[in-house]
């Protein structure tokens, strides 16, 4: 069975490798890094390669999820609508192989694209700024790949759980809007209703716990730990939450020693949740459905 998963994954990867869209997305990521580096090199004096590395987290937190969602949202449902899934399931691979093969294949695609962008960043850092912040780079790259892979998993999970392309796109776009633009409303909103005021810096623990499940702030928190300088999450704000709190990590907002589930490393668990939960739901629905 595992054999089939890797066979399907390799086919997926090869298929995606011929996709113009994918190359365009990779080009976008790489292009962004190049433009960022050259622009900073041109305009800012006295900056180290390690600091520049921190700067590119700002655009990456927006672009990586979009690229990963685009790579994944059609994975299963696209084949279902075109009918190629019948060709695939007529062969020995079963539905489990299809979902997890596709998941692996698409995650590999996103990981490759992100890795390529980071290789370019490393080279440009050395050429333009004269140093190779290897440890920062490696940790930042690994977190970024996990970030991208989580969104790819989310999208593949959604694509397995729905019956039409439109639904898949609607859910994926909806979830992205939720984490980017509506998060404060759905977390700080209830807080306001319960306590009669928006969450202060030292908000209730449950709120800090729930609020950190935003994958974008999780990403910036994690990245902030490994690169030089601050990394701010770029999100829509409505003023419900204390403005000062927006750049702080849950652990910083907790009075005293933060419990494990509010510490920065817990962000890795959060990102894994965004990968595992949608895949589990999508997989369950896919195994039960009529094609």
């Amino acid at each position: 069975m595992t054999d089939h998963i890797t066979t399907v994954a390799r086919k997926e990867f090869e298929d995606a490798g011929r996709s113009k869209l994918l190359w365009a997305l990779t080009g976008l990521l790489v292009g962004l890094v190049i433009v960022g580096y050259v622009a900073i090199w041109y305009t800012v004096d006295d900056v180290t390669a390690a600091e520049v590395l921190g700067f590119i987290a700002l655009p990456l937190q927006t672009i990586i999820p979009i690229a990963a969602l685009i790579v994944g949202y059609m994975a299963v449902v696209g084949e279902r609508r075109s009918g190629s899934i019948k060709l695939l399931l007529g062969l020995p691979p079963n539905r489990t192989d299809v979902v997890f093969g596709k998941l692996l294949g698409r995650m590999a695609v996103v990981a490759t694209a992100v890795a390529l962008a980071f290789v370019v960043a490393l080279v440009l850092g050395a050429v333009l700024f004269g140093s190779v912040p290897f440890v920062d780079w490696l940790a930042f790259g690994a977190i970024s790949i996990l970030f991208g892979v989580s969104f790819a998993g989310l999208a593949v999970g959604v694509s397995a759980g729905v019956s039409t392309r439109g639904k898949s796109m609607a859910i994926v776009v909806g979830l992205y809007m939720l984490v980017l633009a509506l998060w404060e409303l759905v977390t700080a909103g209830p807080y306001y209703l319960i306590y009669g005021e928006g969450p202060p810096v030292e908000a209730e623990t449950w709120y800090l716990f729930v609020d950190q499940f935003n994958p974008i702030t999780t990403y910036t928190t994690l990245v902030g730990n490994v690169v030089e300088g601050e990394v701010f999450p770029f999100m829509f704000q409505y003023g419900l939450e204390d403005f000062e709190a927006s750049g702080m990590t849950p652990a910083e907002r907790y009075a005293g020693d933060a419990p494990f589930y509010l510490q920065d490393w817990f962000g890795l668990v959060v990102l894994l949740c965004w990968l595992v939960v949608p895949v589990a739901i999508g997989y369950y629905r896919f195994t039960k459905t009529d094609l």
């Binding site: 298929d15 011929r18 190629s84 019948k86 060709l87 007529g90």
Partner: peptide
């Protein structure tokens, strides 16, 4: 040989 199938267009 299923009915209403499609191929992988890029492969």
């Amino acid at each position: 040989l299923p009915e209403g199938f499609d191929v992988y267009p890029r492969l």
